[in-house]
Design a protein around this nucleic acid. Structure first.
Length: 615
RNA sequence: GGCCCCGUAGUUCAAUGGAUAGAACGGAAGUUUCCUAAACUUUAAAUACAGGUUCGAUUCCUGUCGGGGCUACCA
C-alpha cells in the first residue's frame, strides 16, 4: 500500500504548481512530522520552509495548501487545521482502516522472504572477550548490542554475518598464566570448584596486585615510577613468556592451552544463558600472524619504518596524529597489529559491503588509527566501509569497572540475580498457577533476562550507562516485563476470542488461515484521543522505525517504539471493551490486537527477548 | 598540557533546528462485582551557567564550570 509520505510528495508538488505556479523541488518527507498529541491531526507539515515558493505568510500558505490537499488527495486527507505555520493534516479513517487490513492480510502471515531486492552483506564483530577474566556487565552490553544490531540489520533486509574474535593471546594472557604458575599450586576448575573463567581471572588479579607491590618496593629504593614499571621482575617474566609463546615454546603453549580451555568452557555457559550465538569464532592466536606479515610487507614498501630501537612504526603526523608502533622491538605484535591483519583477512574472506566493530568508545582513537592505516597508508579503499559502533561505558556509582581491581559486576552473577528476582516477583503475584515446574522455570528466565536486556538496550548506544546495583533493575513501568505482560494479555484475549486462530504462536502462523475481519475505527470524534487510531498509526510507523534503527545501529529506537506500542495498547485495553463488544467491533478490535501482538513479538525478538504466552 | 565525548525532574532514560521539553521509578491521591492490577487514571517536579547564529535552540557555534575517556613497545 502507498505510504502517505509518498502520496504527499506528489500532492504537495501539485498544490504549489496549481496554486502558485511554483516548481516545488524540496524533499517533502523531511518536513513531515507526526502531529503532537495536543493538536488535532495525524501528520504535520512545517510550512515555514516553503514560504520561498508561496511568498505569502505562513498562515495563508498553509490554509491554501491544506484546502488543496483535502480536495485533491483521493480522500486520503480528510481535513486540516493551521496553527502558527504548522499545517496539521487529518488522515481519513478509510486510509487507516485499509492500511491495517492490508497489514494483517499481507504482512503477518507472510514468511520472511524479502528476496527480490538485493541485500547488502554486513560483517559484524562483537563480544571479542579476553581469555584472562570472566565476562562482566560491560561485556553484557557489548554482546546484547552486537546481537541486537545484527538482528535489526537482518530484519531490515541485509545479509548479516556475526563474528567473534577471541583475544586469546598477548601479554595480558601471559600475566594470568604466570601468576597461576607461581602461586596456583596446580589448582584447576575441578579442584577449586570454580568456573574456569573465574579461576583464570583470579590469577589475573593476583598478578596485578603482586606487580604493584614490586613497583612500590622499587620506588622505595629510589627508582622513579616509570622505570619501576619496566624493571619489575614480574613484568619482565611475563614479557619473556610472551616471547616464548610467539616462538612456540612447548611448555608455555601447553599451559596456555590448558588455561584457555577452562575459560572457553566458562564463556560458553555465559553466552548460553544470554542466548548469544555466532556464525564464526576466530581466535587471535590463529590470525595474528597475518598482521605481522602485513606490517613486514608495509615495511618493505616503505609505508612503515624501523626505528633505531628496532620497533616498527608508522608516522601519522600528516593526519594530525602521532607515531604508532606496529611491532615491538623484540618482534612481538601489539593490539593493532592483529586488528590490521584480521581486517584484511575478513575483507578477503567475505567481501562485505560493511564491516562493523562493536567496541567501546574508549577505543575511538584505536579505530581512527586502524582505518587511517588501512585506508591511507596501505591504500585499501574498502576500509571506508569500516564502521566502529562505539558505545558508551557501563559505569557503577563509584566509577568505571576495572577487572584488574576486581570492581566489576559479574555477568553470571547478575543474570542469576535477575532470574531469582523474577521468580520471587512472579510467585508473589501468583502468576504461575497451572504451570509445570519446567514451564515456571522457563518463565522466570524469560522475565529476568527480559528485564536485564531491555534495561541495557533501551539506552542510546552512544551514551554511557550508569548502573546502580543497589537500586537494581525494575520490573514495572518502562521495562521488558511490562512489554511481555502486554503481549501475554493480548495472547489471552486471542485465545478467548478465537481459540482456533492463534496467530501469535509460531506453530500456527505458517498455516494458510486467512483473517477476514475488517478493522473499523469506532467513535468518530476528535480522533486524536481514539486509541484504535493511535494503535494503527503506531503499526504504520513501524517500517520507518525499523529502517531508522538499522541506519543508526540503534536497538534503543526499537525499544522505545515497542514500549510506546505496549503502553498505548494497555490504555486501549483499559478503555475499550474488546471481547464484550458486538461482533463486528469485537473482531475489529481483535484484529488490531493481533497486529500489535505480532509487532511486540517481532520487536522484542530483535532485542533478543522472548515473549511468554502467559505470565 | 593536547585531543575527543557528555551535563535534561530527586533517580534512570526520551525529544531529524520547530508548537505548551515526553516517559518510567520514587513522592502525593485514586481505579478491581469489568477481557491478566507486572495494568490504568490524576498530581507536584528538569534543559549546569553566560553569550552568539536563527522567524524559532535541549539540539548548531564560542566561553565558563562540572564529569568521563584517550594521549603505551596494555588490550
Amino acid at each position: 500500500m502507498d505510504r502517505i509520505e509518498n502520496l504527499l510528495e506528489d500532492y504537495v508538488k501539485n498544490a504549489f504548481k496549481d496554486i502558485y505556479s511554483a516548481d516545488f523541488n524540496d524533499n517533502i518527507s523531511a518536513y513531515i512530522q507526526k502531529t503532537r498529541k495536543e493538536f488535532e491531526g495525524d501528520l504535520t507539515i512545517n510550512i515555514f520552509n516553503f514560504l520561498k515558493y508561496s511568498k505569502e505568510t505562513p498562515d495563508i500558505t498553509a490554509n491554501k495548501i491544506g484546502g488543496y490537499l483535502t480536495e485533491n488527495s483521493n480522500g486520503v486527507i480528510g481535513k486540516f487545521n493551521v496553527i502558527k505555520g504548522f499545517l496539521n493534516l487529518t488522515i481519513s479513517n478509510n486510509y487507516w482502516e485499509d492500511y491495517i487490513n492490508d497489514f494483517v492480510q499481507n504482512s503477518i502471515n507472510k514468511s520472511d522472504n524479502n528476496n527480490n531486492n538485493k541485500k547488502n552483506k554486513v560483517v559484524i564483530e562483537f563480544s571479542s572477550p579476553n581469555t584472562n577474566k570472566p565476562l562482566h556487565l560491560g561485556h553484557i552490553r557489548n554482546n546484547l548490542l552486537g546481537d541486537s544490531v545484527a538482528k535489526i540489520l537482518e530484519k531490515a533486509g541485509n545479509e548479516v554475518v556475526k563474528v567473534n574474535l577471541v583475544n586469546d593471546r598477548g601479554i595480558h594472557i601471559c600475566k594470568s598464566m604466570l601468576a597461576w604458575k607461581l602461586w596456583g599450586n596446580g589448582e584447576t576448575p575441578i579442584t577449586s570448584a570454580l568456573k574456569g573463567d573465574f579461576l583464570v581471572g583470579k590469577y589475573y588479579i593476583k598478578f596485578d596486585s603482586e606487580y604493584k607491590k614490586q613497583i612500590k618496593e622499587l620506588q622505595d629504593q629510589g627508582m622513579d615510577i616509570e622505570t619501576a614499571k619496566k624493571e619489575a621482575s614480574l613484568i619482565k617474566e611475563a614479557q619473556n613468556m610472551l616471547k616464548k609463546w610467539e616462538e612456540g615454546d612447548n611448555d608455555v603453549r601447553k599451559l596456555w592451552e590448558m588455561m584457555n580451555s577452562w575459560v572457553y568452557e566458562g564463556f560458553n555457559k555465559t553466552y548460553n544463558s544470554l542466548g548469544i550465538e555466532f556464525d564464526n569464532i576466530y581466535k587471535e592466536s590463529e590470525t595474528y600472524l597475518k598482521g605481522k606479515e602485513l606490517v613486514e610487507l608495509g615495511l618493505k614498501q616503505n609505508k612503515f619504518y624501523k626505528r633505531d630501537d628496532g620497533a616498527i612504526a608508522v608516522d601519522l603526523s600528516a593526519d594530525g596524529l602521532d607515531e604508532k608502533v606496529l611491532l615491538r622491538s623484540d618482534g612481538t605484535s601489539v593490539y593493532i597489529t592483529q586488528d590490521l591483519g584480521t581486517a584484511v583477512a575478513r575483507h578477503n574472506e567475505y567481501n562485505p559491503d560493511q564491516m562493523i566493530y562493536v567496541v567501546g568508545n574508549e577505543q575511538d582513537y584505536h579505530f581512527q588509527i586502524l582505518k587511517l592505516i588501512l585506508n591511507k597508508k596501505l591504500e585499501f579503499s574498502w576500509a571506508e566501509y569500516i564502521y566502529h559502533l562505539s558505545y558508551g561505558m557501563v559505569e557503577l556509582p563509584e566509577g568505571k569497572m576495572k577487572s584488574r581491581e576486581g570492581t566489576v559486576v559479574d555477568a553470571d552473577d547478575l543474570i542469576e540475580e535477575m532470574i531469582q528476582t523474577a521468580k520471587q516477583k512472579t510467585l508473589e503475584l501468583g502468576k504461575t498457577e497451572g504451570f509445570t515446574e519446567e514451564e515456571a522455570e522457563k518463565l522466570y528466565k524469560q522475565i529476568g533476562l527480559s528485564a536485564l536486556k531491555y534495561y541495557i538496550l533501551k539506552v542510546d548506544p552512544k551514551k554511557k550507562i550508569l548502573f546502580n546495583p543497589a537500586e537494581s533493575i525494575d520490573f514495572n513501568g518502562n521495562t521488558g516485563p511490562f512489554i511481555q505482560y502486554t503481549y501475554a494479555r493480548i495472547n489471552s484475549l486471542l485465545g478467548k476470542g478465537r481459540a482456533a486462530y492463534s496467530y501469535l504462536n509460531d506453530e500456527n502462523t505458517s498455516s494458510n488461515v486467512k483473517w477476514n475481519n475488517k478493522v473499523i475505527i469506532t467513535e468518530e470524534n476528535s480522533s486524536n484521543i481514539n486509541k484504535e487510531r493511535e494503535l494503527i498509526k503506531l503499526v504504520y510507523d513501524y517500517p520507518k522505525i525499523l529502517q531508522e534503527a538499522a541506519k543508526e545501529h540503534s536497538p534503543a529506537l526499537i525499544a522505545n517504539f515497542v514500549y510506546e506500542l505496549a503502553k498505548t495498547f494497555n490504555q486501549f485495553y483499559h478503555e475499550f471493551p474488546i471481547l464484550k463488544a458486538e461482533e463486528n467491533i469485537r473482531n475489529s478490535r481483535l484484529t488490531i490486537s493481533i497486529s500489535v501482538g505480532h509487532l511486540i513479538k517481532e520487536c522484542m525478538g530483535m532485542l533478543g527477548i522472548d515473549v511468554p504466552a502467559k505470565m
